[in-house]
């Protein structure tokens, strides 16, 4: 079951793809798209936490785009 309770490559890729499509994106939009596209059930704080951890990812990472918004950086 996908609920963002663990860091996984699959969930991370889902969020990167959503963020890339809607950037600069907020967590509520990512939550909505995750639910509609992949059936992910996660509350907003969990989505925010996961997105914050994706700032620690490579070669794709999320970066802050001002308060409460994120963009994707592709360092590959």
């Amino acid at each position: 079951m996908s609920d963002l309770s663990r860091l996984t490559h699959q969930q991370s890729d889902w969020i990167f793809d959503i963020a890339a499509a809607f950037q600069p994106v907020d967590a509520a939009r990512v939550q909505q798209e995750l639910a509609e596209r992949h059936g992910v059930t996660a509350d907003l704080p969990q989505v925010v936490k996961y997105m914050e951890w994706l700032r620690s990812s490579f070669p794709r990472k999320l970066a802050h785009a001002g308060p409460e918004r994120w963009t994707v950086v592709d360092l590959g």
Partner: peptide
């Protein structure tokens, strides 16, 4: 990640 604290690894990478 499994803790309830927020850490960042790699900063800008």
């Amino acid at each position: 990640f499994d803790t309830d604290a927020l850490f960042n690894i790699g900063f800008t990478q």
